[in-house]
């Protein structure tokens, strides 16, 4: 029996769909048992969503009322909904828009940017922007999350294979450091360093002063960035026990001695500590007071 799979894109960059293609040869194996019934790169998605979908991979965050409606429609037809990628799972980079007022943002785009000379906010026959960026689970019940910006192709393949075998997939409960091969140092850095600086190879980036989000971020990506000397930006969201990714990292830094922290200049807190999770962070929930369905 073939498994009916759908994919869908909301507010996102289609990077997750590209990551799906990036599963490479594994994709060929998967497609043997799979019928792709609805997927905007290959199927005309203006059609109504077909019924009896087994698995839906939904990319992107919920930014407009259209996104919200589509997510609900997809949920109705689908047995197993997967939040696919960081935007869908945690709100993603889009979520940083929640640090601004949504309506002011729309007006800025249509009034002040050069391309929009007509200075009119379109309102007829276009989706309306929601007051805040939401993750998929704020709108519909989500059965599983594949985090990452984009998700790791190996993990995508693993999750789908597991599902096809009739089993429940599992995410790693540990943090990136668990997979990271760099040598852990116990000394505390005397200053923070920016990503354009060259780190010492083979040594923990955080202890060299790079703001690596690895400790608070869920493992499963094989620490692809840090093993190449690029500090983790936290795209996979909080690890299993972490309450709030950004707060956990801030806490870790704040616990250092006063004179050490004094040297730290932390620019743009939200985009540094909650780059992919701001929309689902506790602080944003408090601030926006959005009624979630």
């Amino acid at each position: 029996m073939t498994v009916r799979i759908a994919t869908m894109g909301m507010a996102g960059c289609s990077g997750c769909h590209i990551a799906l293609l990036d599963t490479g040869v594994a994709l060929l194996d998967l497609l043997k048992d799979v019928e792709l019934v609805y997927s905007y790169p290959v199927v005309d998605t203006k059609n109504p969503i077909p019924p009896n979908i087994d698995v839906a991979l939904i990319e992107g965050s919920i930014r407009t009322d259209h996104d919200q409606e589509m997510a609900k429609a997809m949920r109705k037809q689908t047995k197993f909904v997967i939040a696919f990628g960081a935007c869908s799972a945690h709100g993603g980079v889009n979520g940083l828009a929640n640090t601004f007022n949504a309506q002011e943002g729309v007006e800025y785009v249509y009034h002040k940017t050069i391309l929009m000379a007509q200075k009119v906010v379109p309102h007829e026959n276009v989706p309306q922007v929601l007051p805040a960026d939401l993750r998929l689970s704020d709108v519909v019940k989500v059965d599983f999350v594949i985090p990452g910006c984009p998700p790791h192709p190996d993990e995508i393949a693993k999750v789908i294979t597991t599902l096809l075998a009739g089993e429940t997939p599992q995410l790693s409960k540990k943090s990136i450091c668990d997979e990271c091969p760099l040598e852990r140092l116990t000394e505390i850095p005397d200053q923070l360093r920016r990503t354009h600086e060259i780190p010492e190879p083979e040594k923990c980036l955080l202890s060299q002063g790079f703001l690596c989000m690895g400790p608070a971020t869920r493992a499963g990506c094989n620490a692809e960035c840090t093993r190449r000397g690029m500090p983790c930006t936290g795209c996979r969201g909080p690890s299993e026990t972490v309450w709030d990714q950004g707060v956990a990292m801030l806490d870790a830094l704040a616990a250092m001695e006063e004179d050490q922290v004094a040297n730290f200049k932390l620019p743009r807190l939200a985009s540094t500590f909650a780059r992919y999770t701001y929309a689902s962070s506790k602080l944003d929930n408090l601030r926006k007071g959005v009624q979630k369905p």
Binding site: K173, K174, S175, C177, D178, R184, T186, I188, L206, S207, G214, P215, S239, E240, T241, A252, A255, M256
Partner: peptide, 13 residues
């Protein structure tokens, strides 16, 4: 211990 990443932050504070 399965979640501990050995960063020694706790040891320091």
């Amino acid at each position: 211990e399965s979640l501990c990443i050995g960063c020694a932050n706790c040891y320091a504070v």
